[in-house]
């Protein structure tokens, strides 16, 4: 079981990877989304905010998210560090991504662009 601070650190690593990628920022310039990242085995909630291509992170849940990412703390930490791809936990049901299909594909693609295959 990962700790809340580990999930925070993984999200910071993800944010750093994202913000380094200028192409990705440009591609998401018109994709404004609020994403809730929630662990289902420990009390841990974060909000990812994408505005005009910039990614920011906040502690705690948003009021009205566009997308919800729910999984156990270990999977979340590994996934945002890029140690595992989201596809496997998604297909075996460990990871739940609630949102439109387009948004789900876009999130997977962002992870692919940051961490590679």
């Amino acid at each position: 079981m990962a700790e809340h601070s580990e999930i925070t650190a993984s999200l910071r690593a993800f944010q750093e990877g994202y913000n380094k990628n200028k192409r990705l920022k440009k591609m998401n310039a018109d994709w404004d989304r609020v994403v809730l990242v929630q662990a289902n085995d420990i009390p841990s909630e974060h909000t990812l905010i994408l505005r005009k291509g910039e990614l920011t992170i906040q502690e705690g849940p948003p009021e009205k998210p566009d997308i919800k990412i729910i999984s156990d703390s270990e999977t979340l930490a590994d996934m945002f560090y890029g140690d595992i791809t989201p596809t496997q936990p998604y297909l075996n049901g460990t990871l739940k991504v609630l949102g439109t299909e387009d948004d789900v594909v876009r999130l997977d693609f962002i992870s692919l662009m940051i961490w590679g295959e």
Binding site: M27, Q88, L112, E117
Partner: peptide
């Protein structure tokens, strides 16, 4: 696409349009 990302099908099938995602 999902199967290619999972390495169940050839990786070339996971190519995504950079314009339309």
């Amino acid at each position: 696409y999902a199967s290619a990302r999972e390495h169940v099908l050839p990786t070339c099938l996971s190519k995504v349009s950079l314009k339309y995602f």
